[in-house]
Design a protein around this nucleic acid. Structure first.
Lengths: 164, 164
DNA sequence: TTCGATGCAAACACTTTGCAAATCC
DNA sequence: GGATTTGCAAAGTGTTTGCATCGAA
């Protein structure tokens, strides 16, 4: 039962929906049935997704595309979601609540995102920002390349680019 | 006359236009007058820009929007340009030739990009990728926050959020 | 019972594409 | 002279918005 990350530093006793509720309250906004469904769908598992995927999943639950987009923006502003990357011209979202800071290795072949966390990285960025008098609030790091699965060819096949 | 970066490791004896020419040749493509104008405009100075800005600048030279977009993609593929960030829903380009690897501090207030380079960062990413069996080909790092200019308030003004 | 929220469709911003005419080699 | 490239405008994306209706507090 080992967790991929330590969750100790984050208060997880408040559910995402409750946290959203709090946020909405401060804005004089309401936690409607639709917004509730969206939060439920978004936090059903910890996977990366884009708006269109979510629209598709919520269509079955009779939530409109407009509402999904509107709510995604709210969830981002509320600190429950964040954009991590861009794939196929779409923003990719992931949970930004109850889950620690990390970055991604992005495979150019299969498009998979692999998460990693490095304390040294945070320290490094802190000192870089500091030396520029820059007040760091966050960062986004995408490492491009080929993931281990795609790197090992399944079996010997045709060469794509043989020298003539 | 100090340069911001060492250019020693890059062969700058070949101009961007020549390098583009080479690339086009390998693709059976031609270095037309329009493409030439675009390269000239792009490499006139070392500043960040987006497609729309370039379209605007080249309109005066009678190059169409479509050609600018098409050529930007070519220049990226040729390794002469790369996308560095996204601002206002637009991709921001910068030179990727005759200029060393670096990353950016992005100011959320004024939108300015400040370049920095860290060798330790490259090493760190290399070892992270390595430990995941990931073949790193490049990365993109954006550090968000407030730049030194925007951080120091011009003069004491109203507090935006006074406690009541 | 009052605002805020929803769904719909139209509007948007950025980018790509089909096609005939122009251009390059 | 034949293939590539251009400009134009139309089509495509992903996302936002105006508005009448609906619904939560």
């Amino acid at each position: 039962m080992s967790e991929p990350f330590e969750l100790a530093s984050v208060n997880v006793s408040v559910t995402p929906e409750e946290k959203f509720q709090e946020f909405l309250a401060t804005k004089g906004m309401r936690l409607t049935h639709e917004r509730s469904l969206i939060v439920e769908e978004v936090f059903a598992d910890h996977s990366h997704f884009d708006a269109e995927e979510l629209v598709e999943r919520l269509k079955k639950r009779n939530v409109s595309r407009a509402t999904v987009y509107r709510t995604l923006n709210c969830l981002e502003e509320a600190g429950l979601l964040r954009k991590v990357a861009r794939t196929n011209d779409r923003d990719v979202y992931e949970h930004d609540y109850g889950y620690p800071q990390h970055d991604h290795l992005i495979c150019g072949k299969c498009g998979s995102l692999t998460e990693f966390h490095s304390e040294s990285l945070s320290e490094l960025l802190g000192s870089v920002a500091n030396s520029h008098g820059f007040l760091m609030e966050g960062h986004r790091l995408e490492v491009y390349g080929t993931c281990s699965d795609c790197a090992k060819p399944p079996k010997r096949q045709f060469r794509k680019l043989d020298m003539i």
